[in-house]
Amino acid sequence: MAIFGQVKVKNGQYKLKGDFHTIAPSLPIRNEDEGWRLMGVTNPRSITHIHMYGGEAAFFEALGQGRILGTRCDNPACEHPGTVYLPFRIHCPDCLGRNSVIDLTDVVRRTARVHTFMVCERSGAFNTLDKPIKFINVEFEGVATILMSYLVAGEPEIGLAVTPIFKTINPTYTITDLAFVAQGTTAAQLPMDYTFGV
Rank of each mutant, 00 (worst) to 15 (best):
Asp94Phe: 12
Arg113Lys: 15
Gly66Thr: 01
Phe88Glu: 02
Gly54Ser: 09
Arg113Cys: 08
Ile68Tyr: 00
Arg67Met: 06
Asn99Gly: 00
Tyr53His: 14
Arg110Ala: 15
Cys73Met: 03
Arg72Phe: 00
Thr83Phe: 06
His51Pro: 00
His51Asp: 15
Thr42Asp: 07
Arg109His: 09
Phe60Trp: 14
Thr116Asp: 05
Pro93Thr: 11
Glu56Cys: 09
Val101Asp: 06
Pro87Met: 08
Gly40Phe: 07
Thr111Arg: 02
Arg72Glu: 14
Arg37Met: 09
Thr48Pro: 00
Glu34Trp: 06
Thr128Asp: 06
Leu104Ser: 01
Tyr53Ala: 07
Asn99Cys: 14
Thr128Gln: 06
Phe126Thr: 11
Asp106Gln: 15
Ser46Asp: 09
Leu86Ser: 01
Arg122Leu: 11
Ile102Gly: 05
Asp33Trp: 08
Thr116Pro: 02
His49Val: 10
Thr42Phe: 07
Arg98His: 07
Ile47Lys: 00
Val119Lys: 07
Thr128Arg: 03
Gly82Ser: 05
Met39Asp: 14
Arg122Ser: 14
Leu69Lys: 09
Ala125Lys: 12
Asp130Phe: 01
Val114Gln: 06
Met39Ile: 14
Phe88Thr: 03
Pro76Ser: 04
Gly66Cys: 04
Ile68Ser: 00
Arg110His: 12
Gly97Asn: 11
Lys131Met: 15
His49Ile: 05
Gly35Glu: 03
Val84Arg: 04
Glu56Pro: 02
Asp103Asn: 10
Gly64Phe: 04
Ala125Pro: 11
His80Tyr: 11
Leu96Lys: 12
Phe117Glu: 05
Asp106Trp: 05
Arg37Cys: 04
Ser123Gln: 10
Ala57His: 11
Gly82Met: 06
Thr116Gln: 06
His80Gln: 13
Arg113Gly: 03
Arg72Met: 07
Met39Glu: 15
Lys131Glu: 13
Leu69Gln: 01
Val119Ile: 15
Pro87Trp: 05
Val107Ile: 14
His91Arg: 15
Cys78Asn: 02
Val107His: 04
Pro93Lys: 12
Gln65Arg: 15
Arg113Met: 08
Pro81Gly: 05
Pro81Ala: 02
Ile47Phe: 00
Tyr85Val: 07
Asn75His: 10
His91Leu: 14
Glu121Pro: 06
Thr128Glu: 07
Asp103Tyr: 07
Glu121Trp: 12
Phe60Asp: 10
Glu56Thr: 13
Glu79Pro: 04
Tyr85Arg: 10
Pro81Ser: 00
Val119Phe: 06
Gly54Ile: 08
Ile50Asp: 00
Gly54Asp: 11
Leu104Pro: 01
Thr48Arg: 01
Gly97Trp: 02
Arg89Gly: 03
Arg37Trp: 05
Val107Phe: 04
His115Gly: 08
Thr116Glu: 04
